[in-house]
Simulated assay, not measured.
Amino acid sequence: MRQIFLDTETTGLNPETGDRIVEIGCIEMVSRRLTGRHLHLYLNPERPGSEEATRIHGLTDAFLADKPKFREVAAEFIEFVRGAELIIHNAAFDVGFLNAELRRVQQPRVAELAGGILDTLVMAREQYPGKANSLDALCRRLEVDNTNRTFHGALLDAGLLAEVYIRMTRGQNALVIDADDGQDEGSSDDADLHIDLSAFSVAVLRASEQEIAAHAGVLADLDKASGGKTVWRTISA
């Protein structure tokens, strides 16, 4: 299964009022293994960015002035994401901006290009109800190192999201990047993990008389509190 971790940075909060994308970051994973392939684009939004947005991502109008416009890289973006499941944190935000950009160049919406869209914010709210579930909060909770996140960056955030997703869905401590390690894909080192336990003796610790008496006292108190309806008395009867 091919999946793409995707994030964007924008000039503001609302594509319907003219805000545009200034950065796209995509990282590819196939069969739960990072392939090393990624797409990273800075874009000229053809409009000034808001001060608040610039404080968040650090991408100034001067820096973006000579970058390509979305229409110039649309084909590259579409080819990279086509058919893949897109994994996005707060997907409605990024997808809304991407749809607006695609509409301007008369291309299909994200949902028609991708093989599916998975929102990790929805996942996190289900998994950690009542808790903060921003990307930074998930990094802290799942012990993902985000100390380099001085500014929000699309490629950086896509990478953090990849590790957060892996830990949320499987609990592994690190991502695996495809490499030729000399093993067939179906091979396993499980045989090395089998241990003969017959050589070990297991110590059996028996309760002392004092411990047995204390345990009986606890059971008696519980029985008294339940009005003689404790399960063990029912079973004994």
Score class of each variant (00 low, 15 high):
Gly171Glu: 05
Ile212Thr: 09
Glu211Gly: 02
Leu34Asn: 01
Phe80Asp: 12
Ala154Ile: 01
Asp157Ser: 01
Glu9Met: 09
Glu126Ala: 10
Leu13Val: 02
Gly228Arg: 03
Leu155Pro: 00
Ala100Asp: 05
Leu193Glu: 08
Phe80His: 13
Leu41Trp: 05
Val81Leu: 00
Val204Lys: 10
Asp61Pro: 07
Ile212Gln: 15
Asn14Gln: 11
Glu9Ala: 05
Ile88Asn: 07
Glu112Trp: 00
Ala216Gln: 10
Asn99Val: 14
Pro108Ala: 03
Ala154Thr: 05
Lys229Phe: 02
Ser226His: 05
Ala207Val: 04
Ser50Phe: 14
Thr120Tyr: 07
Val110Ile: 15
Asp190Asn: 07
Arg125Ile: 07
Glu163Thr: 08
Val105Phe: 02
Ile4Ser: 02
Tyr128Gly: 04
Gln210Ile: 10
Glu23Thr: 11
His89Cys: 11
Asp19Pro: 12
Asp189Phe: 13
Phe77Lys: 12
Leu155Phe: 09
Asp184His: 06
Ser134Cys: 08
Asp66Val: 03
Lys224Ser: 08
Ile87Pro: 09
Phe97Asn: 06
Met1Ile: 01
Asp136Trp: 04
Asn173Phe: 02
Gln3Gly: 06
Gly96Gln: 03
Glu211Lys: 14
His89Ile: 09
Gly217Gln: 12
Ser201Tyr: 03
Arg37Phe: 15
Ala237Pro: 06
Glu76Tyr: 07
Asp221Arg: 15
Asp145Tyr: 07
Asp180Ala: 06
Ile212Gly: 02
Gly159Asn: 00
Gly58Asp: 09
Ile56Gln: 04
Met123Glu: 11
Gly83Met: 03
Glu52Pro: 03
Gly227Ser: 00
Asp190Tyr: 10
Glu76Cys: 12
Glu185Gly: 15
Gly83Gln: 00
Glu209Lys: 15
Thr10Arg: 00
Thr230Gly: 09
Ile24Cys: 13
Gly171Lys: 06
Asp94Asn: 08
Thr147Arg: 08
Gly116Cys: 07
Gln210Trp: 01
Ala92Asn: 08
Val202Pro: 00
Asp190Lys: 07
Ser208His: 01
Val202Arg: 14
Ala214Met: 09
Gly83Ile: 01
Val231Phe: 14
Arg47His: 06
Ala74Asp: 01
Val105Gly: 08
Ala132Met: 10
His57Met: 08
Ala91Leu: 06
Leu113Tyr: 04
Asn44Arg: 12
Leu64Met: 14
Leu142Glu: 06
Leu59His: 07
Ala237Trp: 05
Arg37His: 15
Val95Thr: 10
Ile78Val: 15
Arg104Gln: 15
Ala62Glu: 15
Gln183Lys: 14
Asp221Cys: 01
Val231Met: 13
Met168Lys: 00
